[in-house]
Simulated assay, not measured.
Amino acid sequence: MQFIAYIDEAGDEGINKLRDPDSGQSRWLMLGGILVSAENDRLLPSWRDEVLDLFPKKQKRDLHFRYLKHDQKVATSEVLATKRMGICCICSNKETLLDGGRYEALYGKKGHLYNYLTRFLLERLTASVAATARRQGETARLSIVFSRRANTDYAVMREYLEMMRDGKEKMRPVRSIDWSVFDPSDIRVENHSKWAGLQLADCATSAVFSSLERNMYGNYEPRYALTLAKRFIPRSHSILDCGFTLVPQRNRCPLDERQAKFVDDLVGSWRAPGP
Rank of each mutant, 00 (worst) to 15 (best):
I4W: 14
N16G: 14
R27C: 06
A38E: 15
S46Q: 14
D49N: 14
D53V: 02
D62R: 11
D62Y: 13
L63S: 08
H64F: 13
K73C: 08
K73G: 05
L80N: 00
T82P: 00
M85N: 02
C91D: 07
E95H: 09
T96M: 02
G108E: 08
K109C: 10
H112W: 11
N115T: 10
N115M: 12
L117W: 00
T126P: 02
R134L: 12
R135W: 01
R141K: 13
L142P: 01
V145G: 06
F146N: 02
F146Y: 15
S147N: 11
S147W: 05
A155Q: 12
V156F: 08
R165F: 08
G167R: 04
K168V: 11
K170M: 10
P173W: 03
R175L: 13
V181L: 10
D183G: 11
E190T: 04
Q199R: 00
D202Y: 04
S206G: 14
V208E: 03
L212Y: 12
E213R: 01
E213Y: 00
M216Y: 08
M216H: 13
G218A: 05
G218R: 04
A225K: 02
A229N: 03
K230M: 10
P234N: 05
Q249V: 15
R250P: 01
R252L: 12
P254R: 05
D256C: 09
D256G: 07
A260P: 03
V263N: 02
G268H: 09
W270S: 06
P273F: 13
G274W: 13
P275S: 15
P275W: 13
